[in-house]
Design a protein around this nucleic acid. Structure first.
Lengths: 193, 193
DNA sequence: CGCGGGTTTGATGATGCTCAAGCCCGGTGG
DNA sequence: CCACCGGGCTTGAGCATCATCAAACCCGCG
């Protein structure tokens, strides 16, 4: 279960075998069932989480009960409520397992200690954050530049691995449109082939 | 001109006076006039830029010539094309001065050397990236959850310092709507008071 | 004074939302 | 093994929001 984690780190920075062994010890393995909540908005988010297996979503709930998906995270990705994890604020996001999932949890203290202990870890996290920024910017451009249909076609082409696994209603939420609209879009697209 | 930079760093991490002096030396001061382009899409983005004074925008241009604002950066903020700066890819963003501006430029090599030289610098940049992520997520929620009018009212309330200085057309672009729509929204809002 | 960019206004049309109903399919219990 | 849920997806009709195109206006600057 930790193999995927070490492999992910080593894609970005060097790690001796000894360091890798130390690294592993900081992570708490935990399994979640489909539909299980990993984090409830309002609680403190205690962990930065690495997805070893499965698929999760983070989302907010507005005053009318509407859900708005911020992120999908599948194998090899990280997920957390960053504001809550780093600053100890109440979480604004919920995190839910969309499939049976296996996570590796890192606490705030664990992260600090890791950074002190292993030279390349801070660099790894900085690079991770930089990549997240580029991904978020890509996502903003997606809805800023494109119509709902164009945006849908883009994500299905560029990230089919995630979006073929996620249910339609959550994809719609991610795109900022209603499930009805997305359903009609898919009908249109299908007809055209 | 460097004072604001050092102050910004010291808000997040400690820096001895000696370190601060070293830090400063890595930055190239440069002035830009209103409407001047700091970066053209297609070029390599050579610098991470700190805004000592003024206001800038980064934006993409689509196939139809439409502009889409990604970021506004005023005093105390950083701006760059991260993908280009870090990976050496062609820039996808243009960066333009919206006011006469003073920037402090840091090259990629400079950044690496700074990180090697001064202990807390990598931490500073990591924290900076984390804050950027939270800001980008806030922005995604803005257009995902709210109507054009609600989104406009939110940014004018929460970041009046930026959005009172930026021209309407660019605010509209930032929100993903047309200038006409934003003009009408403002009329509505004004009438209501 | 006149030019030109930016903003406003108006008319019309497209896109996406809401509300409501039906359908499909996997899971549960008799 | 089948009948019956119930959630999620689809479909439809009417409506709200926002885009488009075109013209007028406003104002700072040369």
């Amino acid at each position: 279960m930790h193999d995927r984690l070490i492999a992910a780190i080593r894609q970005k920075v060097n790690l001796t075998d000894e360091e890798a062994a130390t690294f592993e010890r900081f992570f708490i393995p935990r399994k979640y069932r489909k539909r299980q909540y990993v984090l409830n908005a309002g609680d403190k988010c205690q962990y930065l989480m690495f997805v070893a297996k499965g698929l999760l979503r983070s989302f907010t709930v507005d005053d009318d009960g509407g859900e708005h998906v911020m992120q999908f995270a599948m194998e090899g990705a990280w997920i957390t409520d960053m504001g809550s994890f780093l600053s100890g604020d109440d979480a604004i996001y919920n995190i839910e397992a969309l499939e049976d999932s296996e996570l590796l949890l890192l606490t705030r203290d664990g992260m600090e200690e890791l950074i002190e202990t292993i030279a390349n870890v801070e660099r790894y996290f900085r690079v991770l954050m930089q990549n997240s920024i580029m991904a978020l910017q890509r996502r903003i451009r997606l809805t800023q530049m494109y119509s709902a249909e164009e945006a849908y076609l883009q994500i299905m082409e560029l990230q089919p691995d995630i979006f073929n696994r996620a249910p339609l209603q959550h994809i719609a939420s991610y795109l900022g449109i209603t499930p009805e609209t997305l359903s009609r879009i898919r009908k249109q697209v299908a007809k055209r082939e």
